[in-house]
Nucleic acid binder design. Structure first.
Length: 377
DNA sequence: AACATACTCAACCGCCCTGTA
DNA sequence: GTACAGGGCGGTTGAGTATGT
């Protein structure tokens, strides 16, 4: 339409409001109501445009304005609503009594948006950022080395921050899942374990990462699609997993005694054994190895029977969200399956051997007892 | 102590929607 | 159907403040 803004009129004051102006505005509105905002300034004796008066009133002077820091509950509510409504600040504000759209918008732009970005999430879509997803294995590798190697020379401030970032990313994936779950639970009871409860919100900022971090750094020279082989607890003294590029090249692999990788497994036909230290050495010596797409989903204390319990590939954290539609987890060897290829027929969410419910999936991810998850702060 | 940088948030800008003549 | 007024909304700005060097 394109009409000139009301404040273009010359002579009208702009900028910060003085206490006297505030007093005039409040007095007038309390006595007469705001009526026509355009007419109000004259009636109230203010040299302001009506729009400026309206903003001052609605964003600052209104008696029911709630000031001060946002509570955790409010923060969770904003995150939740933003994931559904996007930048509809007024709509979000309508769910937060006493908060203005402007205040929520500011809080979003100065806090929550940055928080999401830091955690590797696109603040607009609330989906994991794919550009960062590709770096996650690297972050995890650093974190893993820190966790497993006492060589303090490789532990520096940078690594510490990267580890924290990796953990934060995982946390937020979890939160994202909770939020998605809460949206869906409002229309269905498909996931009663995670009904969003505004009275008892999840506090991600206080969540600890109760899982070990591991990454696999591999040499992909001969095979871009390495497979993961699970230790059957006989060849490796029960030490856990083996990463095998399933090729004739000398495998460069790392395995961790207590971590379950998120890739469907084949029978350990081409298993190669390492002990923990030799694998760590390999990693340390192979700085330019390519990182893989494996994600850790559970600590493990498996036996040979656990061959059926490998759960999901997860090259993209966005694909971590459990798929309750099921699918089958097979153990067939299919080397065309890039680790993390969720379309792969050799792996799926919630398939055989996978956790039977979303909550158990996440409890595996975070190594938390499902019963405890309800009590997260 | 001085300066630089980062952060916060009130306020403004301009577009859009709705009601009305 | 069209034009316009009024209000609402989301994006952006910039002054003030806090923090770091």
């Amino acid at each position: 339409m394109g009409r000139s803004p009301c404040c273009d009129e010359s002579g009208l004051k702009k900028g910060p409001w003085t206490p006297e102006e505030d007093q005039k505005l409040v007095y007038h509105i309390q006595k007469h109501g705001h009526g026509s905002w355009r007419a109000l300034p004259k009636l109230a004796g203010l040299n302001r445009c009506g729009k400026s008066c309206r903003l001052r009133w609605t964003n600052y002077l209104r008696p029911d304005i709630k000031r001060g820091k946002f509570s955790q509950e409010e923060e969770q509510t904003i995150l939740h609503l933003h994931s559904i409504l996007g930048n509809k600040w007024s709509a979000i504000a309508s769910h937060l009594p006493g908060r203005t759209d402007n205040e929520i918008k500011n809080f979003w732009n100065t806090h929550l948006k940055k928080k999401l970005i830091q955690m590797g999430f696109d603040p607009m879509t609330h989906q994991p950022r794919t550009d960062l997803v590709s770096t996650l294995p690297y972050l995890l590798a650093l974190a893993s080395m820190m966790d497993n190697n006492n060589n303090t020379s490789i532990i520096d401030e940078h690594a510490l921050s990267l580890q924290a970032e990796a953990i934060q990313m995982a946390k937020l994936q979890y939160l994202h899942y909770l939020l998605q779950s809460s949206s869906s639970s409002s229309s269905s009871s498909s996931n009663p374990n995670f009904a969003f409860d505004q009275n008892n919100p999840i506090n991600i900022t206080n969540m600890e990462a109760p899982f070990s971090l591991l990454n696999v750094k591999e040499n992909h020279n001969n095979n871009p699609n390495p497979s993961v082989i699970m230790d059957d607890n006989t060849n490796n003294n029960g030490n856990g997993i083996i990463i095998d590029d399933d090729s004739s090249c000398q495998p460069l692999h790392y395995y961790h005694p207590n971590v379950l990788l998120s890739h469907s497994l084949d029978p350990p036909s081409q298993q190669v054994s390492f002990n923990s230290q030799s694998c760590l050495n390999n990693i340390n010596e192979q700085g330019q190895g390519t990182t893989t797409n494996y994600a850790i989903i559970s600590q493990m204390d498996h036996t040979a029977d656990d061959n059926s319990s490998w759960i999901v590939p997860s090259s993209s954290p966005s694909s971590i969200a459990p798929n309750n539609n099921g699918g089958s987890t097979t153990t067939s060897n299919n080397n065309n399956n890039t680790p993390g290829d969720t379309s792969s027929t050799t792996s799926s969410y919630g398939g055989e051997g996978a956790p039977s419910s979303s909550s158990s999936y996440w409890s595996e991810l975070f190594l938390v007892d499902p019963a405890i998850m309800h009590e997260l702060p």
